[in-house]
Computed example of a mutant assay.
Amino acid sequence: MKPSEKGWLKEYLEFRKDLLGELTSEKRKSTHPEHSLYRVIQPTGLMYGHAVEVLDFPDQKNWDEKDKMKLLLAESLISSSLLFHDKPISSPEDLSQLMAKTLDSIANFYNNVFPELATPSKTFFGKRKTGLELAEKILDKRIEKTVEFSGNFWTQFFHNSLLFLDIFIFGQWIHTNADRIVSDFFKYEREELRFSVVKIIAAAAHANQKIEFEERKLLDFFLQSAGLPPEKKKEAIEIFERGIEVEVINLPTNNSWLLKKYFLEMAILT
């Protein structure tokens, strides 16, 4: 399997079907799906912007960082859908239907929440694309965005680590009936979650009452990666300069254990 070639997602699903099926079993689920998802994602390095473990795929020694991150993103999104699925899977047909629905959800999620990645649902000749084809193309595009920042370690680190927020938001998206209002809400949440990382960086920078040169550079690298609109970028710089107390940082989703874990680990890393 070569993640850089067309058809990689179909090969991935075939190779991983047994393990993915196990994710729907009760014995693989914790008291809360977020805990189970953390156990799946954390060892891979995706939360930290660098692929550490790619789960023993054939020929993975020949993959570059982009290939590894693409597989980890696909695996994490699909795992999120399976772990949050609350109905029993009793047959291969049930699993197949759930996977088809998951692929449709991935395509719809990115087409609605990430308009810069929007991909037509039909070919040039009017043939409707399958959920598998759409999901593969969109995931290709999503990872290509990270390649734009491959020249600098910290810029690439921040951009790759933001892939985790894709997974977190997708975990909410799959429980909704998407319409214009829902899509706008998740676009807003996407922006606010990225903006929250700025607040974490600002709080860490002011911890010793002095902003170091390296901390300013970290902010610059993050802003290059985050894709915030100009007004938000300006506000981010203002917050960084004046500082912010950790206690007053309100995350968009305060009751998420997984999100708090992510921001805590981002604070430690920065």
Score class of each variant (00 low, 15 high):
12 Y>A: 00
228 L>P: 04
10 K>P: 07
251 L>K: 04
154 W>G: 09
238 E>L: 13
256 S>M: 10
137 K>V: 04
133 E>C: 06
190 R>N: 12
25 S>F: 07
31 T>Y: 10
24 T>S: 10
33 P>L: 03
37 L>D: 11
157 F>H: 05
245 E>L: 15
61 K>I: 08
91 S>H: 02
144 E>S: 09
256 S>F: 09
211 I>S: 05
61 K>D: 15
9 L>A: 00
3 P>W: 01
109 F>H: 05
128 R>E: 15
251 L>H: 03
181 I>H: 11
97 Q>T: 14
34 E>V: 15
261 K>W: 10
172 Q>A: 11
29 K>Q: 13
126 G>S: 10
89 I>H: 01
262 Y>Q: 06
141 K>R: 13
79 S>K: 03
125 F>R: 12
52 V>G: 04
118 A>E: 12
211 I>R: 11
231 E>R: 12
65 E>R: 08
101 K>M: 11
155 T>I: 15
216 R>Y: 07
64 D>N: 14
183 S>Y: 04
181 I>G: 11
185 F>Q: 14
268 I>V: 15
75 E>N: 12
32 H>W: 09
242 R>W: 08
198 V>R: 04
191 E>R: 14
235 E>V: 13
171 G>E: 00
166 D>M: 00
251 L>T: 05
107 A>C: 07
200 I>P: 03
116 E>V: 02
263 F>H: 05
168 F>H: 05
81 S>Q: 05
84 F>N: 11
10 K>W: 06
50 H>R: 13
96 S>E: 15
89 I>L: 13
47 M>N: 09
11 E>Y: 02
216 R>L: 11
79 S>P: 00
173 W>P: 02
228 L>N: 03
106 I>A: 04
45 G>M: 02
225 S>V: 05
262 Y>L: 08
89 I>N: 01
40 V>W: 00
192 E>Y: 06
94 D>C: 06
18 D>P: 02
44 T>I: 03
254 N>V: 09
267 A>F: 07
225 S>D: 04
160 N>R: 13
258 L>G: 06
70 K>Q: 05
115 P>L: 07
147 V>R: 07
263 F>N: 00
52 V>D: 12
